[in-house]
Design a protein around this nucleic acid. Structure first.
Lengths: 234, 234
DNA sequence: GACACTATGGCACTCAGTACCCTCTGGCAA
DNA sequence: TTGCCAGAGGGTACTGAGTGCCATAGTGTC
């Protein structure tokens, strides 16, 4: 009726629904909100909801589908650099999505923490990222010893590290720089697993050697970090 | 009525239900089987099903609850040895459960692969194992730098490695020794992440050093393996 | 104006999961 | 014996997610 400025393209229904759903979830809780409540608030028919979201849970994560597509595209276009670094960069795409909307991300995080159904749903989303990363690594490690195994373990490590940093930021209420923690975490994983093609990319002679000295009782991850700095990767 | 041998303790209803459910799932598929079908086959009331299984999915994984309890108990009783080795051993408890019943495990694996709902449910189960392992590691790493981060990444690595080996065995139809692949996978993870307290447990002097030489272009994981053998941990 | 195509609404249905109440059974005490 | 209690299981009705099918309205195009 009184639709304000004339050429105002009416917001796409998908966003209207997601917005209405999220507000209701915040107000009265996820389980206490029915799909009928959502469509009533959005002023549309019930059937329309399920045309845009296959399930009630999907309305809480309206942006992951796009992000997953971005990640896939990113990996398809990736050049042949360090595989671990590449998947770490791919993981950062997810962080970028969260960071693009801190308030929403934090609210959703709190909501998800409290609703078992949403936690489970989120797991399936995270798993798809992990599988995407693992698929890329599997190709890169094709033919290498334990290639498939390393692909999956590295993908899991990257996802775990990313999520650790991300959660730290979310728990803090979305204040400050989310990239710091995530980059630190991903850096650790990269330090442990990476290195293969990175060295080969250097024009240095193959017969160059590095001598590393470490106390015998030193923790392995500390040893790895020293190797890193010895190789000048830090 | 004609209940065969007299002192035959009637099988506990939970098992009767799980058995009936699983057979029906194999015969006509998970989604094509309703809870009414299951209770009809088991010869009990519908209400009883939900007394024993909170959801239809739970009937497919009747043993994980117990296994998770075993893992928790195992970690509580664990001595202070190498933390990574301890969680690797804890993960092996899961493999033991699968290996105790190869045919069932393989059938369930095939079923789970095909049913999205079951895949998602399994994710939530796996996640609980992962959290249990991470919780243990977090305590062990208390106060260390990046302790919580390392706990989560290592837990994720261990779970990924375990599942990689397990799936290899399941895909093979449950033939042969499942422990071989899993031990190999866990060994790799342990080689990369372990070492901290292991070295300290040696009576060797703190000032002992190891000198390691490696080609500059060598992959990091290969470097790690060489360090391992240098330290005599292989 | 007929046609087609797409977006949306409405209705009816299945089925998982829950709340509430009933029955049956086996103790156990007065 | 009677009365009482407790615990296992059964039955019924309800809520709410998700689906299939059809009707309707808007928007072109010829």
């Amino acid at each position: 009726m009184t639709e304000a400025t004339r050429p105002a393209k009416k917001a796409p229904m998908r966003e209207v629904l997601a917005e209405a759903a999220f507000q209701l979830f915040l107000d009265r809780g996820f389980e206490q909100t029915t799909v009928d409540d959502i469509v009533a608030r959005a002023g549309v028919g019930r059937r329309s909801f399920f045309r845009y979201f296959p399930s009630k849970e999907d309305a809480v994560f309206p942006d992951h589908e796009r992000c997953l597509a971005d990640m896939t595209a990113f990996l398809e276009e990736a050049d042949g650099g360090d595989p671990v670094g590449t998947v770490a960069d791919a993981a950062r795409l997810v962080l970028r999505m969260y960071a693009a909307n801190p308030e929403f991300s934090v609210q959703r995080y709190r909501l998800t923490r409290e609703v078992p159904g949403l936690r489970t749903y989120e797991l399936s989303v995270v798993r798809r990222y992990e599988r995407t990363l693992a698929g890329y690594l599997r190709e890169r490690f094709e033919g290498e010893r334990d290639g498939a195994l390393r692909a999956e373990v590295i993908a899991a490590s990257v996802v775990a590290a990313h999520n650790n940093g991300l959660r730290t930021w979310l728990r803090s209420g979305g204040e400050g720089d989310p990239y710091a923690a995530v980059d630190h975490a991903l850096g650790m994983v990269r330090g442990v697993w990476s290195g293969a093609d990175q060295g080969a990319a250097l024009p240095a002679a193959e017969d160059e050697v590095v001598v590393m000295v470490a106390p015998k009782g030193a923790p392995m991850w500390q040893v790895v970090q020293r190797i890193e700095s010895a190789l000048g990767q830090g």
